[in-house]
Design a protein around this nucleic acid. Sequence first.
DNA 1: CCATGTGTATCAATACAACAATACACATAG
DNA 2: CTATGTGTATTGTTGTATTGATACACATGG
Lengths: 128, 128
Amino acid sequence: MDASLLTITPGAAEPIYRQIVEQLRRMITSGQLPPGESLPSVRDVAGRHAINPMTVSRAYSLLEGEGLLERLRGMGMVVAATRRARPAGERMSLLEPRLHDLARAARELELPASRVLRRLGELLEDGE
Amino acid sequence: MDASLLTITPGAAEPIYRQIVEQLRRMITSGQLPPGESLPSVRDVAGRHAINPMTVSRAYSLLEGEGLLERLRGMGMVVAATRRARPAGERMSLLEPRLHDLARAARELELPASRVLRRLGELLEDGE
DNA sequence: CCATGTGTATCAATACAACAATACACATAG
DNA sequence: CTATGTGTATTGTTGTATTGATACACATGG
């Protein structure tokens, strides 16, 4: 995997290490990063995004703790062999909290459901 | 306005004062809280949710800085008289960041747009 | 005047994130 | 063996954010 595929925003409210964790978790869960795929080295990611190597290492370690990554000593990190892409229903559950937040915000803003759905539809198509 | 209308989750990642700020901002922007409507006292909110009065005060002060609230000295806070409900287009922009985050997460999870939209549709209807 | 109700200024405590600079253990290429 | 590449443990520092405790200024009702 190329280090440039990670989107990192140092100024954001969400801490950097968690941005990395959640992004990789999603890409592994979907199978976008297949088992055996090797990840960019911590120094590579750190250098390219001008962040501290230990911050990247922290993210990798957390994912190893989840069983999503495996550590090959002396070599890099790799997507765990046992980790296959999960079915859509399971992936969907990772989206649920965000969906609930969005729904609540839309309700408090008294926005018509049709308008929210239409806009989201646009954004979902643009990305592909 | 009743203090119990606020939904506060002390354990959440989002800080308490910001939960209050964003919630009230949405309710004022939509007109759900009309100009002149008085807000619950800081001690009322704090007592009911077991949080510190200063945390509530901080939220109120930020909203006063935005021009959404007015301070009546010695008495409480009130929705600013000049603050009318905003048109839907403007309210929509408050939702944009959340929509982008959601779209990105869905893309990384490789979830079909139809499924995401369907689920959001359900959640939007349940709330009303 | 006094009791009670507002919001808040001030200071302190705590937690967290990120960085910096090493040093170490391991594996591979030469 | 050596050089270079992995990840990581360690220690310390810095900056910031969040929350809390206390005391104060103001307004109103009695």
